[in-house]
């Protein structure tokens, strides 16, 4: 029952479902978001317009810029701490653990928490860091503290700790992949040429694993940058992120156009980061492949 359809038809059959979906549910919504950011709010609804008022509000009202900078700072710290923890771990797995089964298990041990509900993993930090939480009651029972301290929760530090915890697997995965790809004979060659282990690491391993570092950094940064759940749970007013402001515009404030403008600013920042990271990756491939 071979019905040889013309290639063009077969192509269209494979291509059209994803193409229609992508146009309908991605291209169109993003375009509408863009258009909406020029609309005007006329409480309780919004009217079509072509004006830059929303963007002017974002620039003139300092709270938006302040929140944006805070979000960037928190996301950058999350990526940095993830890197500082993930790199040694990935290096350990690739270079120090000999048995493949053990290496696989230890790798899975880091990736596995991703399968456990994100919400619950963030929530646990609230139960650990809160005034009635486990850390406080532990410190009191050991006599280090005499009364519960509120300093652990609802600030930027608790945001960084929680988000690092939640997103660290996204740093381990690409770094591990990059380290594993480095041919061992390069390291042997470096040693044969009289390089010490530190020099070999700095001149061979580290540069060759940079693509993984950049990929991991991009991923964790973007994820932390867009997060708004952790801020509700452990952030408090001091740890509010840009996404929380957007969510408020679409909720209580009912100013969708302003929220759209804010989302667009966020989109542009994320796209800029991705394109820089892409360029770097291509550069890396050109140099080493």
């Amino acid at each position: 029952m071979t019905l040889p359809l013309p290639l063009r038809v077969r192509k269209a059959l494979v291509l059209s479902p994803p193409l229609i979906w992508v146009v309908l549910f991605m291209f169109v919504p993003y375009t509408i978001l863009f258009v909406f950011s020029f609309w005007q709010q006329q409480y309780p609804t919004f009217t079509p317009a072509l004006q830059l008022g929303n963007y002017q509000t974002l620039i003139s009202d300092p709270q938006y810029l302040r929140t944006l900078l805070r979000t960037i700072k928190i996301a950058a710290l999350v990526s940095l701490f993830s890197l500082l923890l993930a790199y040694p771990y990935a290096y350990f797995l690739v270079h120090k653990v000999r048995r493949p089964a053990l290496r696989q298990t230890l790798y899975m041990a880091v990736v596995a928490p991703l399968w456990v509900s994100y919400l619950l993993r963030a929530y646990t930090w609230k139960t650990i860091l809160g005034t009635e939480g486990i850390l406080n009651s532990f410190l009191i029972s050991t006599g280090i503290l005499t009364e519960p301290s509120p300093i652990f929760l609802y600030n930027q530090t608790s945001m960084v700790v929680t988000l690092t915890y939640v997103f660290i697997p996204f740093m381990v995965m690409p770094i591990y992949a990059a380290l594993e790809k480095i041919p061992r004979n390069l390291l042997e060659a470096s040693a044969d040429l009289g390089m010490g282990r530190t020099a070999t690491f700095l001149k061979v391993t580290l540069p060759l694993s940079l693509t993984g570092v950049v990929a991991g950094f991009t991923m964790t940064f973007c994820l932390a940058f867009g997060d708004f759940i952790a801020a509700y749970l452990v952030g408090g007013p001091d740890g509010m992120m840009i996404s929380n402001v957007i969510a408020t515009q679409f909720g209580a404030s009912l100013n969708w156009p302003l929220g759209s403008a804010l989302a667009l600013v966020m989109l542009v920042i994320v796209l800029a980061i991705i394109s820089v990271s892409d360029r770097f990756e291509r550069l890396g491939k050109g140099a080493f492949a």
């Binding site: 509408i32 978001l33 973007c222 679409f250 969708w256 989302a263």
Partner: peptide, 12 residues
């Protein structure tokens, strides 16, 4: 993959 879910959410 890299786009915050909130943007997908509000645009839809």
């Amino acid at each position: 993959i890299a786009l915050p879910g909130i943007i997908t959410g509000i645009s839809m």
